[in-house]
Design a protein around this nucleic acid. Structure first.
Length: 265
DNA sequence: ATGCCGTATCTAATACGA
């Protein structure tokens, strides 16, 4: 039996419980990493999630913004979290599975509207966050181990990761500066970009369609902001990858859709 | 025209997303 690991920015967990139930029933991930849970830990709907078949439910959230969770079908060996950019803003959580795989769940800052760190503190924060991830990924305890990094990284690095490359080059999430940081992250951890391992870069691949323009999904004006990266030790074990695009057509959807990978371990 | 929405919060107007 392969191990199935999925990631989904749900844009409010409590608003998306029905969708979560439908997705877990249909796709049966063994490990599901969530971002933008937007719920403080004391309000986390732990019983609802356990009734979906998840024995181990870890969460690290706050009121209104950010927040991450990891749902595991079975037991785990350990879990941890790390503070990034000296901010206690609930953007990371990790578990070590009994088979030794580390699963790291990230919600990278979106970066605000203007791609200039001098004018926009949120963009400066995003750049610092990605720099910290690069330094972390280069540590032997990550690079040399069996590590899966997933989450909403808020960068669409390749030309075919956005619906209009030329038009969006100066938009936060697709600037050359951010794409360069993603390339450095990949190199630092010796990571395989799992999405692009299975879907060649010639082919458009998206995981997010904005709410603001009502026809964004109908017209396929998408971005690939959600990612799965796997270290070299796991590369031979990658068996299947999927973007579960149909969740975006459900009633009152998240603006992001799930990505999942199967590993034969 | 991703300027047009969705979610959360001190339930009213604002912050935030990317």
């Amino acid at each position: 039996m392969p191990t199935r690991i999925a990631t989904w920015n749900v844009n409010s967990l409590r608003q998306r419980l029905e969708h979560l139930k439908a997705f877990t029933d249909s796709h049966q991930p063994d490990v599901l990493c969530l971002q933008e849970t937007k719920v403080q830990d004391s309000e986390f709907p732990e019983d609802d999630i356990k009734s979906m078949g998840y024995e181990t439910v870890l969460f690290h959230g706050q009121k209104s913004y950010n927040g991450v969770a990891i749902l595991c079908r079975n037991s785990i060996s350990s879990s941890n979290r790390k503070v990034w950019c000296d901010k206690d803003d609930r953007r990371h959580l990790m578990v070590t599975l009994p088979n030794g795989i580390q699963v790291h769940n990230f919600y990278v800052p979106s970066g605000g509207p203007v791609p200039d760190p001098e004018q926009n503190d949120k963009f400066a924060h995003k750049l610092s966050f990605l720099e910290e991830m690069i330094a972390w990924a280069a540590e032997p305890s990550i690079r040399k181990e069996k590590v899966i990094l997933v989450g909403d990284l808020n960068v669409a690095p390749l030309e075919t990761d956005v619906w209009n490359h030329k038009k969006l080059l100066k938009s936060v999430g697709h600037t050359p500066q951010e794409s360069g940081l993603m390339a450095r992250l990949k190199a630092a951890g010796d990571f395989t970009d799992v999405g692009r391992h299975f879907v060649p870069p010639e082919q458009p691949l998206y995981s997010w369609w904005g709410y603001r323009y009502k026809l964004s999904f109908a017209k396929d004006y998408g971005w690939r902001l959600d990612h799965i990266l796997a270290t070299e030790a796991l590369r031979p074990h990658l068996k299947h990858f999927e973007v579960v695009k149909d969740t975006r057509s459900w009633e009152k959807p998240s603006d992001h859709v799930p990505n999942l990978v199967d590993l034969d371990l």
